[in-house]
Simulated scan of single mutants.
Amino acid sequence: MTGIEVQIEPWTDTDLALLRRVNTPEMKKHVGGPETEEQLLVRHGRYLDFVPSGLGCMYRIVLQPGGEAVGTVGYGTRTWAGGTVHEMGWNVLPGHQGRGIAAAAARAAVAAARREAAHRFLHAFPAVDNPASNAVCAKAGFTLVGETDFEFPPGRFMRSNDWRVDLRG
C-alpha cells in the first residue's frame, strides 16, 4: 500500500451513491447477492441513524491524497450468543482490492469503536469460503472464535467464521 493513506469518514446522505456502487453481484456474492433499491434505501437510512441512535457508526473509506471514496466500513448493534454486541462489515470496490485498504480501514474503525462503542465486543462474520475477508479480520486484530451458522441477510444462513475484538482489552 505504498503511498496510500486510508481515512474513514462518517456516513452522510451523499453516500447513497457509494452504497449503490458496492451493491453488485461480484461484491455481494458471499452475502446473498445484491439488494433491491428499496432494501438499499432502508440500509442507507439505517446507516444514517447509527450515530444518532447510538447503535454504531458507518464510514466511507477515503484514499488520500485525492479523497476518492473506495468503499465502506462500519459497525452496528446486534444480539449474539445471548448478549448485545457490535458487528463490523466492509466493502472495497474491485479496482482497489488487494492493496491492504480493507484491513487499514477496519483497523481505523476498530480504533473508533474502542472510543465510541457502547458494547464490549465487536464481531465480524465473514463466510468461511471468503479468504479475503477472513484475512482482513486477522490483519485488523480480530481473534478467531470459531465457525458458526450465521443468518445474513435475514432468512439466509451461511457458514461463517466468528471473529471478535474485545474493545475494552
Score class of each variant (00 low, 15 high):
T24M: 06
G83R: 12
R20M: 09
L48F: 09
T12R: 13
T72I: 14
H119P: 03
T143K: 10
R43D: 11
D129I: 08
R168H: 14
A109T: 02
E26N: 07
W80F: 15
D166S: 11
M58K: 05
A127F: 06
G67L: 12
T148S: 13
R21N: 08
L144G: 01
W90H: 15
G155D: 06
A113V: 06
R43Y: 09
R21P: 04
G54M: 08
M88N: 02
R20F: 05
W80L: 09
I101Y: 05
V51F: 08
V42K: 15
E9H: 09
R159F: 06
T77L: 09
R156T: 09
P65M: 09
G98A: 12
G169F: 04
F50S: 02
P94A: 14
G83A: 11
A138D: 09
H30Y: 15
T12Y: 01
E68Y: 07
G82H: 08
T79P: 02
V31P: 00
R115G: 05
R43V: 12
H96F: 15
W163A: 03
A140G: 03
G71D: 06
P52T: 04
V51G: 06
G100N: 10
V62Q: 07
V62G: 02
M58I: 00
G3W: 09
T148M: 14
A106M: 06
V31C: 05
N130L: 05
F157W: 10
E5H: 13
G155T: 03
V128H: 03
A106S: 14
L167W: 05
F150N: 08
E9K: 12
K139A: 13
Q39R: 13
Q39S: 15
R115E: 14
A109F: 02
F152V: 03
I101M: 10
T148F: 03
E37A: 15
V22S: 01
S160W: 06
A103P: 06
G100Y: 09
N91E: 13
V70A: 04
Y75E: 04
F50V: 00
E151A: 13
L19K: 02
D13H: 06
D162E: 15
L93S: 13
E35G: 05
P154C: 08
M158S: 02
P131S: 11
F142E: 00
G66R: 12
V31K: 05
V92I: 12
I61M: 02
G54V: 12
V22P: 00
G169Q: 10
A103Y: 07
G146M: 10
G146P: 01
W163F: 14
D129K: 02
A81E: 14
G33N: 12
E116Q: 13
G146S: 11
R78D: 02
V62M: 02
E9F: 04
A69F: 00
I61Q: 01
A17E: 14
A69I: 08
H96R: 14
G74V: 05
A112C: 04
G95M: 13
R159L: 12
A117M: 09
G76M: 08
K139M: 07
N23E: 06
Q7D: 13
D129W: 14
E68G: 00
R60A: 05
R21Y: 04
N161D: 09
V6I: 12
Q7Y: 01
L18K: 00
R46T: 12
R20Q: 15
V110N: 03
D129A: 14
R156N: 01
G82R: 08
D149W: 12
K139P: 00
A140N: 05
L19H: 06
W80V: 00
